[in-house]
Amino acid sequence: MDFRLPLPLRRVSYALCLFILFVVLEKFKLPLPRWQPAGLLAPLKSNSQKLRNVEIPLNTPDGLQVLKEAIHAADNRYRPKMIIDPLGQVSYRYSLREGEKKKSEAELKKLLETSRQNENYTRKIYRIIDTLTSFGVLVVIGEPLKRGASGEWDPFHQVLRLSPKSLNMGSEVVLEILNHESIHVAQSCKAGGINYRPQPLDLPLSPERITGKPLKSDVYASITSTQRRLEQEAYSYEYSNRAARNLLAKHCS
């Protein structure tokens, strides 16, 4: 004997069950599961949402002027000066950057001969800031969230930060920091976009360039093996502005 309800009554009972379920969900505000891509950290933000009050954005003429004056003053501070005494003896006066080794006379002469190189570094700095800006990254002068860092890529806010102290190291150092953090931006882009958690680019590493880098410092004390790989890639290629811009073009376009 078939004890099933007639089809019209079954349909009414199904509808009643769905209605009761909807009322329960509304009453208790039960969270419904939401799918989002793996690695997505936050929605894309406008520049006004990215910027903290104490930060100087470098996507404006005023911000670029602050950057230009700071690195120009630092370049002048670290440029060697040749001193000739009354007896014709030549000596050199120069300042060392933090962690820099004493330079030989030959190295100082070379620095004097290539002083225009700083102008080249500055042009490359402007160029990579333009490239980052075109991909939606806001480059700012501001203290990194990670204490002790000279630069920082923050994919949650889509901001690349240059610490104020890094500007005092001159144009060559600032360019290297921008190259390094730009590689982290490319790592985010490979994962899905500038608002994604970075993932390795599977680049060949350069042991020579990684050796001596501060991967054993307190800044990196608690990083995971994946984060270490991300840093090793950035340190391997930070010397090359062309590599940094090519990686951005390849993964962020």
Score class of each variant (00 low, 15 high):
180 H>Y: 03
197 R>N: 05
221 A>T: 07
223 I>S: 10
164 P>G: 04
204 P>T: 07
200 P>T: 03
173 V>S: 13
133 T>I: 07
183 I>R: 02
169 M>W: 14
184 H>N: 02
201 L>S: 01
135 F>A: 05
173 V>A: 12
153 W>Y: 13
203 L>V: 04
149 A>K: 02
139 V>L: 06
156 F>G: 00
221 A>L: 14
228 R>G: 11
214 P>Q: 08
218 D>I: 14
238 E>Y: 08
208 E>W: 06
243 A>R: 10
138 L>P: 04
211 T>Y: 13
204 P>M: 12
231 E>W: 04
214 P>I: 12
183 I>M: 05
166 S>I: 14
225 S>A: 14
202 D>A: 08
167 L>A: 10
211 T>N: 13
224 T>G: 03
190 K>S: 07
137 V>N: 00
229 R>W: 04
163 S>A: 13
158 Q>D: 00
152 E>L: 09
138 L>A: 02
211 T>M: 15
245 R>N: 05
149 A>L: 09
226 T>M: 07
134 S>F: 02
178 L>Y: 06
208 E>G: 08
153 W>T: 02
200 P>C: 04
185 V>R: 04
193 G>V: 03
172 E>S: 14
185 V>M: 01
209 R>A: 09
238 E>W: 08
200 P>L: 03
157 H>A: 10
199 Q>I: 14
213 K>S: 15
149 A>T: 02
152 E>R: 02
166 S>P: 01
190 K>D: 05
234 A>E: 01
227 Q>E: 15
217 S>V: 08
191 A>R: 11
228 R>Y: 09
152 E>G: 07
134 S>V: 04
240 S>W: 02
212 G>E: 06
152 E>H: 09
199 Q>M: 14
238 E>F: 07
210 I>F: 05
230 L>W: 04
153 W>P: 01
239 Y>Q: 09
206 S>K: 15
235 Y>P: 11
177 I>V: 15
183 I>S: 06
167 L>P: 11
143 E>V: 14
219 V>M: 12
201 L>M: 00
242 R>M: 09
246 N>K: 14
143 E>A: 13
161 R>C: 03
130 D>N: 13
172 E>P: 03
211 T>A: 15
144 P>L: 13
238 E>V: 11
175 L>F: 08
226 T>G: 00
192 G>W: 00
212 G>K: 05
169 M>F: 15
168 N>V: 13
178 L>H: 07
229 R>E: 12
179 N>I: 09
150 S>E: 12
213 K>D: 11
239 Y>L: 10
242 R>I: 12
142 G>S: 10
135 F>K: 12
206 S>Q: 15
146 K>E: 15
184 H>Y: 03
165 K>P: 08
144 P>E: 14
240 S>A: 05
217 S>L: 10
223 I>C: 11
194 I>T: 06
243 A>F: 09
148 G>K: 07
131 T>Y: 04
164 P>H: 01
216 K>W: 08
216 K>H: 13
222 S>Y: 14
132 L>Q: 02
161 R>H: 04
242 R>C: 04
244 A>D: 11
208 E>I: 10
229 R>K: 13
215 L>E: 09
200 P>K: 06
156 F>W: 03
197 R>C: 04
195 N>T: 01
198 P>K: 02
237 Y>T: 07
233 E>R: 12
215 L>Y: 06
241 N>Y: 04
155 P>K: 05
241 N>T: 10
188 S>Q: 08
130 D>E: 15
236 S>H: 06
207 P>R: 07
182 S>D: 02
156 F>R: 01
201 L>A: 00
133 T>S: 15
215 L>T: 10
